[in-house]
Nucleic acid binder design. Structure first.
Length: 137
DNA sequence: GCCAACGTTGGC
DNA sequence: GCCAACGTTGGC
């Protein structure tokens, strides 16, 4: 079981929209970054991820689960791009903000802090536990 | 809204 | 294959 983090601007695709999709989930399409795509190729069904609101919100608002492994991205004909499907699992009782993440020494190596531009990122198990604890889970 | 950081593109 | 120019992202 691996852990990940998915970033989205709530203007484009928000946690609420993701929740409304329910167990059907939603294709995480539109990613045009090789690093991010490569991480999606590594994902397995059942892997867990944080759902993070960038630009507006700047906080981890919920937990999602991978419900389809990497497949061609339907938002393009370009065969280079693939994506997974994810579904909402549960919201964070207390969303964990970027500020809180930065203030926590245990999370100083998180990709979210180190490379804030990467839209799909791996999360270490110890980071996962720490963020869940901070989020009230 | 600004702008630094990063990834990609394309001329050489 | 280098690297300058450009476009985009995302925290502030």
């Amino acid at each position: 079981m691996a852990y990940w983090l998915f970033k989205s601007e709530p203007d484009a695709w928000s946690w609420d929209q993701q929740v409304k999709k329910g167990d059907a989930g939603e294709e995480w399409g539109g990613v045009r970054n090789y690093q991010a795509r490569n991480f999606m190729r590594e994902m397995k069904i059942g892997d867990q991820g944080f759902f993070y609101h960038s630009r507006q919100g700047l906080e981890i608002v919920g937990i999602v689960e991978v419900c389809a492994e990497a497949h061609p991205d339907s938002t393009t004909d370009d065969a280079r791009w693939e994506c997974v499907d994810i579904k909402a699992v549960k919201p964070m009782p207390k969303p964990v903000s970027m500020k809180n993440v930065k203030a926590n020494p245990k999370l100083e190596d998180m990709v979210l802090v180190k490379n804030s531009r990467l839209s799909v990122q791996p999360v270490k198990p110890e980071e996962w536990e720490e963020v869940c604890r901070m989020g009230g889970l």
